[in-house]
Write a protein that binds this DNA or RNA. Structure first.
Lengths: 339, 339
DNA sequence: TACTTTAATGTTAACGTTAACATTATTATA
DNA sequence: TATAATAATGTTAACGTTAACATTAAAGTA
């Protein structure tokens, strides 16, 4: 940072006090309009750019929101960020972006950074490998307003905004059941992550409600990525022919993409041999050779609602801790065997 | 920001000076190891979190890099951000993300914000609608190290990292020429943006080198988005049958997607009736019903190289202004009529 | 032991801004 | 005109940290 023009220099140029410069520039009343004009003109002429850092220190407010993203290349997150950004822009907040890369340690690092940077609030979607919630409590203890989005941690006193995971999972599993599939497997996410648990729960509930037996063999952990989906599906395909599932519900679309590859690799067809459905409506889902039946998660909406809630917490002590659930929609394409 | 524990409180707790606390915590030498341990223990016990804002003000350095992104949902950008993030994380910098939404005014706003936040450097990819480069000069005048990535502005003394746009455009146009197509159109980007100009230039050069006539009628501005691609293609399809192009090179993949929709809508086939190629290798390109032949832009690499250069400028006065060009690769799929 | 070197700690000022209070200039009122 | 009210400007301190210099304590050296 080279030495920049400060309010002091503007003041000296005009032989007035720094405070008058500050007032003129921030538009407070009780400033002679001629003084104000002179200040504005001089500030422009000298190339004065207010120093937000100093302002933040003085006012104990940074007008900045920290966002923790587990994996920026998952199409859900750029969409969510757009929702976040739209709101923060009009509300006058800025964004510090941190990336946990699905890694618990990096996530902790990110949160510490955000705390040190004195962000006014934090938006976080937990990383896949997180098993220890202490760091979240630390943040809560620091009284930094925090809202979880999409992948939430409940019961630690933070608001969260998520989609109706359990219900969506149940809905799409039931869709498979309606196709008369009996042997339905689930590629599940890490159970340390809310959406992993909830989608599994929805799957189980659907089976139960329709009197289908639940079998541990039909639940294989895939994680949230394509390679995990491939490996998990491979495991299912290794089952003896008789036990092989007839349909699969993957915890998210990338995992489903991997699973599809594994199925094709064995020379099997979708949905003729095995039907498959996903969750999240990745932008690629409808473009696949066999378009994927899935659950649409309104990512933009999740991001938007989450910041709105967060800004509520920041600006209003009384704002209630909430759990906001956004509805999902089932998108029926070819991979389930409907049409 | 509620009142947090400060170094002062840690110092008072131990009856020592703030400076000793600061030294112990920042690992400077000349601190008694027993004192150091006590300080660290007390800091942890009291829940001390160093205040980066105060530190930034004192040191005139924020360890923060500002990134301006034109459209976060374009798959190029999340990839580029990952490249950026990987480098900044290990180098100890943080990221402020700003979104111009392809809008010149918002871009200006973003740059002003970044200047006010006293970022150590700026990474920017210009918005589609920018026609006035004054704001960039303002930033240069403030001596904020700046590197352009992907969409660059040359000749204002900033380094830039881009792909070999002209060469890539030429290469893929020539690929069409090799297929014996004569009537080749181009859906071009805004000419105010470097990549718009360069890709058009590559297209022209390819025609020229192969003695094909260039016609203004075959260049239609589409912008960078799907809807623009659709409209531009529609315009081409409105030409009398005799004049209708046999092949199309779109400025980027989203524009190509829109164009494909327009072609299908008229009941025409790709590549039988019209061949089409794009640029950028969007994650969706290979999944389309007719997979798109395109130019792969190594987004991760562009991001990575750009921050590396930027950090060079930040940490080393002598760092040379550079134009770094990254090679592209042609990805041949079905839409050009190859196989 | 007296003196020098070095290690450990302390003090002051600065980074650039704003809030709170203090002062001065201007205008309105009796 | 004298006095009160108000508008305009100024002064001081604070936000939390670190660099630079100052001091004191401890350890070597002659």
């Amino acid at each position: 940072m080279s030495k920049r023009v400060t309010a002091k220099q503007v003041a000296e140029e005009l032989n007035i006090s720094i405070m008058t410069v500050s007032r003129a520039l921030s538009g407070s009343p009780n400033v002679d309009h001629r003084t104000k004009e002179k200040v504005i003109e001089t500030a422009r002429r000298l190339g004065y750019v207010p120093n937000q850092i100093a302002k933040s220190l003085a006012l104990q407010k940074t007008d900045t929101i920290g966002v923790v993203v587990p994996e920026i290349t998952h199409s859900f997150f750029p969409e969510a960020i757009r929702g976040i950004e739209k709101v923060t822009y009009s509300a006058g907040y800025h964004l510090i972006l941190t990336h946990s890369a699905e890694n618990a340690e990096r996530e902790m690092d990110a949160l510490k950074t955000l705390a040190a940077k004195r962000v006014d609030g934090i938006l976080i979607s937990t990383a896949e490998s997180v098993t220890d919630y202490d760091i979240y409590s630390d943040i809560m203890n620091l009284k930094i307003p925090t809202v979880f989005y999409d992948r939430c941690v409940m019961g630690i006193g933070a608001s969260c905004v998520c989609v109706n995971d359990k219900h969506g999972a149940k809905k799409i599993t039931e869709h498979l059941i309606e196709h008369k599939y009996k042997k339905i497997a689930h590629l599940c996410g890490p159970l340390s992550v809310s959406i992993g648990r909830l989608r599994l729960a929805g799957y189980k509930k659907a089976l139960q409600d329709h009197n289908l037996v639940f079998s541990e063999d039909y639940v294989v952990e895939s994680g949230f990525h394509e390679d995990g989906g491939f490996r998990a599906m491979d495991k299912l395909l290794d089952l003896p022919e008789k036990k092989r599932p007839r349909a699969v519900f993957a915890v998210n679309d990338p995992a489903a993409f991997g699973a599809m590859k594994a199925i094709f690799k064995r020379g099997l067809s979708i949905p003729q041999d095995i039907a498959i459905v996903g969750f999240s409506d990745d932008i690629r889902a409808e473009l696949l050779p066999v378009p994927l039946t899935t659950i649409r998660q309104p990512a933009f909406e999740v991001g938007k609602k989450a910041v709105e809630k967060l800004i509520g917490h920041i600006e209003n002590e009384e704002e209630k801790i909430d759990k906001i659930v956004i509805d999902t929609e089932i998108i029926i394409r070819k991979s389930c065997g409907c049409n």
